[in-house]
Simulated assay, not measured.
Amino acid sequence: MAADAGAAQRYRGIQALMAARVAQRVLQVWRDLMNPAKVDASWLAVRAALVPIVEQGRQQSAELARVAYTEARRAEISEEDGFKPEGPLPLLLDRLESALDVTGPIEFKKAIAAGKTPQQALDAAAVRMVGTTQYLALEGGRQVMNRSIEADERATGWARVTDGSPCAWCAMLASRGPVYKTAKTAGDPRQGGNSYHDHCACQAWPAFTHDEPFIGVAEKLYDDWLRTTRGRGGTHAVNAFRRWWESEGRAGYAAPERP
């Protein structure tokens, strides 16, 4: 049975909505509690308010992934074999607080040192902080998907599902289409299909057969990859695709219709 591309797109969308809610809460705390005249004094209260927001978002993302994986698996595998999706790895408090420190007061002070006004510095730090907090929250669901796919003997691999305007890196990785756990990727510069970055809206979607279709615009991206990298390999291929994407590819990209 072919993968449900509509379910994959809906899953990506609901994770994006969860991340948007995290961003709203983070920005509200930042604007309400951060005092640009007393950065260090106000930061401890800001960080204490941000920690549970990220932790709750991470739990929500993990639960969304658990439900989605279970439903996707049930749609492809009719018999019950007792498999349960894996949980995410724990988010260590030291890691979370360090990430918040770097994107909060440290980013603010860097912006001030670069000649920004206090308001501009607050805005610059807010952008960094939203990206990092969303990344850490979404990591919960992404780990559930990746760890479950690795642990599930019935899973053949995954596909990367992008949003309507991915960066060149994510568009390149999505162009691989379904990636199988046993696939030989040596020599393919598009490795790293399960890696993500701040402000990244991509998600992994499980595959349970060896004839999975491309999801969304991945097949078109694959054709564009072949065309723009013809005769090139390695980093030369990556750079050629990136140049094409930034000059004209992104403008011609059409997001999949909402199912």
Rank of each mutant, 00 (worst) to 15 (best):
D188A: 09
G140Y: 06
L44C: 05
A254I: 11
D32L: 00
P178F: 11
T228S: 11
K110D: 12
G234W: 09
I215L: 15
V144M: 09
V179T: 05
V238K: 12
G115Q: 04
K38C: 04
S165L: 07
T162M: 10
M34D: 01
V161K: 10
K110A: 11
V39Y: 02
Y180G: 11
A65V: 13
Q203K: 10
Q134T: 12
E139W: 08
Y135M: 15
A20M: 00
G157P: 07
Q119N: 11
W225K: 03
K184D: 15
T132H: 04
T209Y: 06
W43S: 11
P105W: 03
P118L: 05
A7R: 07
A99G: 15
R230G: 14
R147S: 03
D198A: 10
R25G: 05
D4E: 06
A16V: 03
M172D: 09
I106L: 14
T156F: 13
V51R: 04
R232D: 13
Q143N: 06
E219R: 14
G6N: 15
N194L: 00
M172K: 02
Q60P: 00
M129H: 05
G6R: 08
R10F: 13
N194I: 00
A121F: 07
A65K: 03
T70V: 12
P189F: 04
Q15D: 01
R250C: 03
K220T: 14
T103P: 06
H210D: 08
T133V: 01
W225R: 06
F83K: 05
D152G: 08
A113C: 10
R31G: 00
A155H: 11
A204T: 01
A48F: 07
Q119W: 08
V102S: 14
A171E: 01
P118I: 05
Y11V: 08
G177L: 07
A75I: 06
Q28I: 00
A124K: 14
R31T: 08
T185P: 00
L64D: 03
A19R: 01
G234T: 10
A151Y: 09
G216M: 00
A125V: 03
P189V: 08
P88A: 06
M1S: 01
T209K: 10
R73C: 03
T185A: 01
A159Q: 01
K184Q: 07
G131R: 07
V51E: 13
R190C: 08
E248A: 15
A171N: 00
A124Y: 09
A72P: 02
A2R: 13
A114Y: 00
A8R: 09
R66K: 13
M145V: 08
V179I: 09
S42T: 06
Q28W: 06
Y253T: 14
G187E: 12
F108V: 02
Q28N: 06
L93C: 06
G57A: 05
R95S: 12
R25V: 01
C202P: 02
T117P: 02
A49H: 02
R258I: 11
A41P: 02
Y11L: 13
P88E: 10
F108I: 08
